[in-house]
Design a protein around this nucleic acid. Structure first.
Length: 382
RNA sequence: GGGCGUGUGGCUGAGCAGCAAAGGCAUCAGACUGUAAAUCUGACGAGGUCUCCUCUUCGCAGGUGCAAGUCCUGCCGCGCCCA
């Protein structure tokens, strides 16, 4: 992997870049659509390509469970397995430490609407989630599919990711819950840092894969600074920035500001799991090159289309009679060929094609949005 | 004309004599940011001093019960069969 910075903004930390992998290039800043189970849900790989997606991220945890990395390896690696010839990343399974752990217990996402404060529940040092066990060497999971016990640690994750064969892989970390208190996060950070070292050691010498180390530290300044310096010192090819990123845009910005100056600016930075349209400009201005987010694909399957008019809930019966494109200005193949009334009808009829049409549009819309932001950087406007 | 069956909230459809009445659909509202996610949560007869209370409901009209959507009688509607 090779990363070139084509232009640095004079107005912000934004950069225009060029990420080169053996499966092609990625123009950054770039949205990375999520293909957890080696598929962008509802789309085949050619369609995903047609949405202007440049790179996808699949998931180690899920692919390890099903179908298992051996099958993928035998198929010639993820690219061949899923017929995606362009760049690919795999996430390490670190997010599942959260989503299947405290996230599940407390029914919270990694971004809280507000922090409950002293009265609210906090996760304290030493506390364990109900369904998984976080240890020094890794995490004992229970398969959400069949309850099977499954151990995943830094070494295991890297070995699996090498077999999967994405161009970029991530270190195994603990994505801490936003409810975790300072002491918990401190301990967790030690563990994650230790795991980062193990990940690098576990890597086979022959691999061409780039490995990104993940900065954690939750909403705590000292920990974010410590983590970014430490992860930088280990010499990864790039960085992931993960975990709790605060309850609002301002905090997210602050957290990024604590982090970025400590990272080698020649290396790509990937903000993990963040990407509301309204946040994109801010995160890119903060110096983020890549970011993945389930929102465009996930919301699509809830019947929600993103447009220049805002979010449209196509399930709403008022769209049943609207014989117009999802977005007037959009030139994606869905907007050129289908109308709201039809998509709304498909949704109400429970037809899965509705989900595909909206997924396609949303990805196109998001990718176009980022494309425009790249142009803005190019033109010195951000 | 006779026999059997049936009539429940916007629709569908459970319902034992002690229910404002299961479930589903529809509707409305909410959630979702490295995907346990084509999902989940809540409301859904009316009103209120709204963790509780009041009123009005199960084709219509009567009746028997402390108590009836649930039993009885009559009427009306619908369905099937026989004539």
């Amino acid at each position: 992997m090779d990363f070139k910075i084509l232009k640095k903004s004079k107005l912000s930390r934004a950069r225009l870049g060029f990420l080169e992998t053996s499966h092609g290039v990625v123009e950054t800043p770039c949205l990375v659509p999520v293909a957890t189970q080696a598929v962008v849900k509802t789309l085949d790989s050619e369609e995903a390509h047609e949405t202007k997606s440049q790179i996808l991220i699949a998931n180690t945890f899920h692919l390890h469970l099903k179908p298992g990395e051996k099958i993928v390896e035998k198929a010639g690696g993820l690219h061949k397995f899923m017929n995606w010839r362009k760049p690919l990343m795999t996430d390490s399974g670190g997010y599942q430490v959260f989503s299947l752990g405290f996230g599940r217990d407390y029914e919270v996402g990694k971004v809280l609407k507000f922090f409950p404060g002293k009265k609210g529940e906090a996760i304290k040092e030493g506390q364990q989630p109900q369904h998984i066990k976080i240890g020094l060497d890794g995490v004992i999971f229970r398969s959400p599919i069949n309850g099977d016990e499954l151990f995943l640690g830094p070494k295991e994750s890297i070995k699996i990711q090498e077999k999967l064969g994405a161009d970029i892989i991530f270190a195994f970390d603990e994505c801490t819950a936003p409810l975790a208190d300072l002491k918990y996060v401190k301990k967790s950070l030690e563990r994650t840092h230790n795991w980062a070292k193990i990940c690098l050691k576990a890597r086979s010498k022959r691999t061409k894969q780039a490995m990104f180390g993940i900065v954690q530290g939750s909403r705590f300044k000292a920990l974010r600074e410590e983590s970014s310096k430490f992860i930088d010192s280990l010499g990864f090819e790039g960085y992931g920035i993960g975990g709790d990123l605060g309850t609002n845009k301002q905090t997210t910005k602050k957290i990024l500001d604590w982090t970025m100056p400590n990272l080698n600016e020649k290396k790509p930075r990937h903000l993990l799991g963040i990407g509301y349209l309204e946040d994109m400009e801010m995160i890119i201005k903060s110096g983020v090159d890549l970011f993945d987010c389930t929102v465009p694909t996930h919301y699509a399957r809830r019947g929600i289309a993103f447009t220049s008019q805002g979010k449209l809930d196509l399930k709403d019966k008022k769209f049943f009679k609207k014989n117009e494109a999802l977005d007037k200005g959009c030139v994606c193949k869905i907007c050129l060929n289908y109308k709201k009334d039809y998509i709304s009808h498909l949704l109400r009829a429970g037809e899965i094609t509705a989900l595909k049409l909206i997924t396609f549009h949303n990805l196109w819309y998001f990718n176009t949005f980022v494309e425009e932001l790249r142009t803005k950087i190019k033109n010195g406007k951000m």
